[in-house]
Amino acid sequence: MNFIKYNLIGLINTLIHWSIYFYSLYELNFSSTISNVIGFLFAATGSYIFNSKFNYNQEINTIRYIKFLFIMSILAYTIALIFQSQELSHFIMLITYTLTSVILGFFLTKYWVFKK
Rank of each mutant, 00 (worst) to 15 (best):
L75G: 06
I95T: 08
T62A: 14
F22Y: 15
M93I: 00
T98E: 01
Y65G: 09
S73G: 02
Y23P: 12
Y48M: 04
M1R: 09
I92W: 11
W18T: 10
F54Q: 05
I12F: 14
F50W: 12
W112Y: 13
F3R: 03
G39K: 10
F54R: 02
F114L: 06
K110R: 15
I4L: 14
T78K: 03
Y48D: 07
N7E: 00
I82K: 01
S24T: 09
W112A: 09
F22P: 15
Q58Y: 04
F70A: 14
I66L: 15
M1P: 13
K116N: 15
L94I: 12
I103Y: 02
Q84N: 13
S85P: 03
S31E: 03
F40V: 03
L99H: 00
E59F: 12
F107N: 04
I20K: 04
L41Q: 11
I79F: 08
K53D: 03
A80I: 00
F83K: 04
S19F: 05
I4C: 06
I95E: 01
F30W: 12
I34L: 15
N57Y: 13
I66N: 03
F30L: 15
N36R: 07
T14G: 03
N13D: 03
T45A: 11
I34W: 13
K53N: 14
L11N: 00
S31D: 13
L28P: 08
K115R: 10
K53Y: 14
L28G: 03
T78C: 05
I4N: 08
I82Y: 07
K53G: 10
V37H: 04
V113W: 07
N61L: 09
L88M: 08
F54N: 07
T98R: 04
L41H: 07
I16Y: 01
R64L: 06
I103L: 12
I71P: 00
F70H: 00
S85C: 00
I63W: 05
L88G: 00
S47F: 09
N57T: 07
F22T: 14
M1C: 04
L99P: 05
G39D: 08
Y48Q: 05
L69A: 04
K110S: 10
S31T: 14
K116I: 02
A80K: 02
T96N: 03
F3M: 10
I60S: 09
N55Y: 01
M1V: 10
N2Y: 07
L8Y: 12
T14Q: 05
F30C: 07
I66D: 06
K115V: 05
Y65N: 05
L81V: 07
I49R: 03
F70K: 00
Q86L: 15
N55F: 05
I12L: 15
F83V: 01
E59N: 15
V113Y: 03
G39L: 12
Y97L: 13
F3Y: 14
S32K: 10
